[in-house]
Amino acid sequence: MLFFIGRRLYQAALVMLTVALVAFAMFQYVGDPVSNLAGQDTTVADRELLREALGLNDSVLEQFGRFIFNAVQGEFGQSYRMRVPVSDLIAERFPATLELSLVSALIALIVGIPMGVYTALRRNSWLARSFMTLSLIGISLPTFLIGIFLILFFGVILQWLPTFGRGQVVDLGWWTTGLLTASGWKSMIMPAITLAVFQMTLIVRLIRAEMLEVLRTDYIKFARARGLTERSISFSHALKNTLVPVITIIGLQIGSLIAFAIITESVFQWPGMGLLFIQAIGEVDIPIMSAYLLLIGFVFVLINLIVDILYFSIDPRLRVER
């Protein structure tokens, strides 16, 4: 077990280094940060001084080395544009993204699992068919389109829901939350739904497929033969066995929630990390971009590691293989 985890950790570190290198290499080409840091009357010579002070004239390798050296110590440098440490910014923005992701994951699960189970059990009913059609439409709608149309309809035409931001946030010192105020919840609805639609359809289809597989296995047939009720078969036998792979995939999907949050956050001006990142790209705020990618890389690696370990402990067959 320890050896297994050790090996995965070593691999994880390699992955992180690669992510960092790739991200860093990309940033060499996204533009010149200095043009945003100086006013229009600033002379060429002063601009050059600023480049020098920021270390932008050093070789790429040097800059990368410095970046890694600092990152290992938890030091991501300072945002060029907002002029505060990047670690502060991320700490400030992280709660927004996490709350949004969790709420939409919850919506996706609560709506998705029953729909998936139903469509598998009553495969040919009209309701199941319309669920499947809905889920197909859900998969076919790009996230940004959903967001735009929700804003147009519920925000602007009906004026029911706020169209941007987190509403009133409560600061707990180490965490800011929008979940304690009514305006916070209202602001959450549209972005959370936007983000949830794709995950939800994925879950419906996944559960359905897995259930159908499980329902054909011998032990379900055997359970039927034993005369157990359909209900008990569906829920205690079939669903339970479906859930293992589903949980894995959902775990992995949390990562993609954070990534899709980039789009949702930029449509709803949700002050999370995705918005921070996409705006940093526009303003060539290199320290933020590097830190974000490293962090996201870290989250993914961590999730993978947890999923691997879970697998390892749930499914004894894997132990033999390793």
């Binding site: 840091l37 600023l50 002070a53 920021l54 300072q78 945002s79 907002m82 002029r83 440490p85």
Partner: peptide, 8 residues
Amino acid sequence: SSPADAGR
């Protein structure tokens, strides 16, 4: 303060 001194 220049952008290079941020946080210091």
